[in-house]
Design a protein around this nucleic acid. Sequence first.
DNA 1: TCAAGATTGATGCACCTGCATCAAATGGGG
DNA 2: CCCCATTTGATGCAGGTGCATCAATCTTGA
Lengths: 169, 169
Amino acid sequence: MKRKPSTEATSAWIRLMRVQSRVLDCVEQDLKKAGFPPLAWYDALLELSRAPSGELRPVELERQMLIPQYSTSRLIDRLVDEGLASRRECKIDKRGQFVEITEAGRELQKRMWGAYSAAIEKYVGSKLSDADAVKLSGLLDRLGCSCGEMKLPPVAQANANTNETSPSR
Amino acid sequence: MKRKPSTEATSAWIRLMRVQSRVLDCVEQDLKKAGFPPLAWYDALLELSRAPSGELRPVELERQMLIPQYSTSRLIDRLVDEGLASRRECKIDKRGQFVEITEAGRELQKRMWGAYSAAIEKYVGSKLSDADAVKLSGLLDRLGCSCGEMKLPPVAQANANTNETSPSR
DNA sequence: TCAAGATTGATGCACCTGCATCAAATGGGG
DNA sequence: CCCCATTTGATGCAGGTGCATCAATCTTGA
């Protein structure tokens, strides 16, 4: 049961690793050069701003962002430290809490989307036709599901047509 | 000059980020569970083992692996600490040095390739036909070059047909 | 009702990374 | 020949991540 991967598969693997890290680097660099915090902050702010009343349980955020629990916990710490979100206790479950995005948080999210969307266009959009982007998405999707177990909840749909919303990573 | 990315491009971006990180995680997990060190070690050992006499200047390694200088420096530290490589002074340029892979290093690289190739097959090869893998590679290549400036030196060609060699990330 | 187990969130530790900077050595132009 | 810019490699520091574990609370089932 140890079939070797084909050269084609191996080559795709290498490119997937290389290209992703290069493109991500470029985008993160652009954001940083524009004076913005890391993309993870954007993702969190976006999830929060999308939530019904601008607040989520950390556990929800964790599931949306597909990052580990402790990582969520500390990300929230940083957001709170910067005044971008605030913690609120949860009356019905005293273990838990709510994290609520602040006005500053909403505003930063919107400003970041300007730089972020420009970077996506620069490093992805301008390199591929829409048709090719769709092909690429399709091929990637075939890899994405079921690593070990899969559960992609109703996670972050892209939604860039209304010219105000924005994607998450 | 701030054209917004299409939904298609944005969606491809999101998937690129998500899928890569999931697949990479899976592969790294498999390696770790098999008791092996991180993939970066493998990449370094592979580059060294491929070099003419099993040794490279750190600068070369850095260029091959596309990682920053300090990262190379510390990776070499760890390899040396574990007896997988050794530093040799460079007579002709006293600033520099050579890093030479040891027998243990060569052996580890080969053993890792067993687990590594199995993981590639499991998470990539088995999910795509060879034809689709080629399509994916092609689409990714269109993104990969020229982030800022590009220089992909004669970097790591995939070469899994001879059943003993192996790829780098 | 109550003890055992599950869930929620925080945190100490080790390690890894990026950034800035350093020292040593080289090499080239005046 | 000498000074200065460049190349090569190391390292202190701040921050981020994974792992293990903890305390508090909730839930379940006997």
